[in-house]
Amino acid sequence: MTGLFANLIIGVAVALAVWAAVLAAANKRITRSLLIGAAVLEVMLLAYLIGGVVQMIGTDRTFAKFEFLAYLVGLLIIPPLGIAWAWDEKSRSGVAVVAVVFLVVPIMVMRVQQVWAGVGA
């Protein structure tokens, strides 16, 4: 659950967060292209969840499996929830919320990697 794909997710999420922050700074609202970016990230997070479950079933190592699954499912749920919460906000705060939510993704991916590696919470 480490490796290239996880790092790619982190890279995409950080890029989207910077993009959203720039939009907020420019006093813009959520744009269509930002939403497309969010959809791409969401597909990657779905693949990450599926890959995680497959790898979890394929290993007999002991690690915090429920925690591992919770982070993977949380990763999938949190971005859409955040965008829904930001959606009808007319001020720049809406897209700022989206920036915050995208920044949570790298933190959670790193936690997934720690749990997978068996580092204690």
Binding site: W85, S91, A121
Partner: peptide, 25 residues
């Protein structure tokens, strides 16, 4: 509204994070 949108989002993130981590612990 306004900054409150961000504040609620931050509180929600802390709520989810602290709840799940403390429940597991």
């Amino acid at each position: 509204r306004g900054f409150g949108r961000i504040l609620v989002a931050l509180y929600a993130i802390m709520a989810i994070g602290a709840t799940t981590r403390s429940l597991f612990a």
